[in-house]
Simulated scan of single mutants.
Amino acid sequence: MDVIRTPRLVLRGWRREDAPVFYAINQDARVHEFLPGPMSMEQVEAFIAFQLALFARTRACYFALETEGALAGFVGLKRHDADSLLPFAPCTDIGWRLAPAYWGKGIAGEAARACLAYGFGELQLEEIVSFTVPENLRSRAVMEKLGMREDTGGGFAHPALPPEHRLSRHVLYRLRR
């Protein structure tokens, strides 16, 4: 299932054979520098199953990102319902995670722009958010290049992490249609 295409990228549904590649991507310390840690194979398989179920329910998810026939990571949209623990839910966030071999080539931005067009066009969303830890300057730069602006609310403590965790504090970016 190809959902979104750009001249050099395919954003598609996940496949069983993506699991080992995505697992390997998540073992790289550079990839999980601003995440709680690497994903186990069980977590990768659960992630893929969740994304497929999310797409079936909302027509959006963190899509598998393919370039030149290779899985590069993911870029996509994730719906957080009102019962989410995020303090600004309900919302839809845009997120990405790429293997370092694909960094610095404009791939995250290209895929994210295509996802924003899909979200605001096809899905008729009014707003899309994104968030990360303040130190993740690469992701923040992508957010700003997309036209997203940092929320002036001072950030938030991520509800999936203990308040004292080094990655608990997050900044929030917003973009309206």
Score class of each variant (00 low, 15 high):
7 P>K: 08
129 V>R: 09
135 E>C: 10
145 K>V: 00
36 P>H: 13
113 R>F: 01
11 L>V: 04
8 R>C: 08
133 V>I: 11
130 S>Y: 00
165 H>D: 15
139 S>K: 05
90 P>V: 00
68 E>T: 09
136 N>S: 10
2 D>T: 13
149 R>I: 03
141 A>Y: 00
55 F>H: 15
141 A>S: 12
97 R>S: 04
72 A>E: 05
176 R>P: 06
134 P>Y: 08
48 I>L: 07
8 R>N: 15
94 I>G: 05
67 T>F: 03
62 Y>Q: 14
148 M>V: 03
129 V>Y: 10
139 S>Q: 08
148 M>K: 02
3 V>S: 07
172 L>W: 09
84 S>V: 07
109 G>S: 12
68 E>I: 02
63 F>A: 08
109 G>A: 04
140 R>C: 11
160 A>M: 14
61 C>E: 05
147 G>I: 01
12 R>C: 04
43 Q>F: 10
77 L>V: 07
150 E>T: 00
144 E>V: 08
168 S>K: 10
102 Y>T: 02
56 A>P: 07
86 L>D: 00
161 L>D: 01
71 L>K: 04
157 A>R: 13
45 E>P: 12
19 A>K: 05
105 K>C: 09
25 I>M: 09
11 L>T: 04
118 Y>S: 06
132 T>N: 14
50 F>N: 11
115 C>K: 02
139 S>D: 03
141 A>P: 07
63 F>Q: 09
141 A>F: 06
130 S>I: 06
132 T>E: 15
156 F>M: 01
21 V>L: 10
100 P>W: 03
12 R>P: 02
166 R>G: 04
12 R>S: 04
135 E>I: 00
153 G>S: 15
167 L>A: 12
34 F>E: 12
121 G>Q: 14
138 R>K: 14
151 D>H: 11
